[in-house]
Amino acid sequence: MDLIWEGLRKALELLLRLDPEVLRITWLSLKVSGIATLISVVLGLGLAVLMALNEFPGKRLVIALVNTGMGLPPVVVGLFVTVFLWRNGPLGFLGILYTPAAIILAQAVIATPIIAGLGLAALQHLPPGLRLQILSLGATRPQMVWLLLKEARLPLLAAVMAGFGGVISEVGASIMVGGNLKGSTRVLTTATVMETSRGNFDVAFALSFILLILAFGVNTLLTHLQQRGRRS
């Protein structure tokens, strides 16, 4: 137990002292997972809209696949992305293995199905007549999509939060495709694993608390966005 208090104290100390290494790791975590989430929002919501508004053969199969993808284990994604990015792999020419870009790629693969799956559920939950009603009022198709997304704002932002939560907390893919390189690809989760294996449990706890604070901060922001204009 005292280790936890020690960790909390250390976290505050590292933050208040503005420890440059910790700040860099924290900022990189936020940047990498933030960009991965943004990419996943574009791809995932796009996919959700396509699936929600169109009928096509095999649609149920596609939905089942997306829903399965929501549970993709990060280490499996990490393994696949690593092998693709190897120098001698199919995407080796990009030369991005062991760089932040590789972590973003892997995290986008993890978050896209989460946002697509939850986003699709949110859109399908809207009253079925709504779309026709909007179109009959003379809206263009893009306007209609925009209104639908606005209407489903609450669950859609929940989907974004789930996607972000999934990637900021994962370690399996980040450590494999990033390599936990000091000053380059070390993020909060991989640093926590490393400090644990070095026996520096106080630092590991400190990093964990910083991660929790970060996740709380981002989710507070998104929740504010989500609940805007609502009275509770």
């Binding site: 940047k31 960009i35 943004l38 990419i39 991005i96 870009a101």
Partner: peptide, 21 residues
């Protein structure tokens, strides 16, 4: 809406650019 969207994309690009090797 489109200016919002393009603003968002520009932000995304700028953000990504900071990460290129």
């Amino acid at each position: 809406r489109f200016s919002k969207l393009s603003g968002f994309l520009a932000l995304l690009l700028a953000f990504t650019a900071t990460l290129l090797p």
